[in-house]
Write a protein that binds this DNA or RNA. Structure first.
Lengths: 143, 143
DNA sequence: GCCAAATGTCGCTATGGTGGTTACACACTG
DNA sequence: CAGTGTGTAACCACCATAGCGACATTTGGC
């Protein structure tokens, strides 16, 4: 299967917040750009807030804000905030311990799988929300 | 979400086949080591056969065999054989084209996402079934 | 030729994750 | 105090997955 769309939507949300210029942005407004339900956006914002990537302002005129400069938020942080867990799933049922391969295959694979995951995460850690916004602007101008 | 357990189980199966020393291995036997249902194993073997990683021998005394030397089968090939598709899912509904961010976010992210996926795949392409079996043997000896 | 063994494949079911939707309590602004 | 917007829970529908059984087909041995 694939990584949930939460990651892409979360990056979308954070990029939107960066363009707001410090003004709180409502979940309704964000939902309009993402084309989904405001509650879905709030659910994601809740995860992002727990990861200290956003803050929220309650009451009239409230909304979401970036908790840190966009140039300081890496895509890896976003990924971990909304899509936690191991990338590779192991066997559902534990393999047969009576088989030499079965009782060692998971341990033998662990290094390989984690290094593959590290490679992906390293790539994500090189990109920031500010970088994404720059690309969005570039796309807008060349269009 | 995570990558389906098919990948890990497929590696398990191929490693088993390598240990069989050229004799056909039945799906029942494999299912015993993986601790699952023979039909599940046969479903995976069908995918692996389509990717030219295994062959099957029908009839009495039949079973599955590696189609190529284990040192020639990379984990990337296994991954692609059983877990096709893009690693990152995009928005379910297309973003709002009336929003500058919404209409460019997917194009802006594409490079980043594909390069992250490439990084993961590159790591998998450096490992072979023979290498996995070597690690299994090493685990067995140190245990 | 016939039987047993084994594959390839279909269909069904249960389960879990995901996203969409509504609803409502709470907090803040003016 | 009234209005606005968040935070969160509950519920639903959808989809992929894996487990399971069944059956036609092919092959080898007697």
């Amino acid at each position: 299967m694939s990584i949930s769309s939460r990651f892409v939507v979360a990056v979308h949300i954070l990029t939107l917040l960066e363009t707001s210029g410090g003004k709180p942005t409502t979940s309704d407004w964000i939902a309009g750009s993402v084309n989904t339900n405001p509650a879905v956006v709030r659910r994601l914002l809740s995860m992002l807030a727990k990861a200290d990537l956003t803050t929220s302002q309650l009451g009239t005129g409230g909304g979401a804000l970036l908790a840190r400069p966009a140039s300081d938020i890496t895509l890896l942080e976003v990924y971990r905030a909304v899509d936690e867990g191991e990338l590779f799933a192991l066997h559902n049922e534990a393999p047969n311990p009576a088989c030499p391969v079965g009782r060692n295959i998971q341990a033998a694979l662990q290094d390989t799988l984690t290094s593959a995951q590290r490679a992906l995460e390293a790539e994500l850690s090189h990109q920031t929300i500010a970088g994404v916004l720059a690309k969005v602007v570039a796309c807008e101008e060349t269009a």
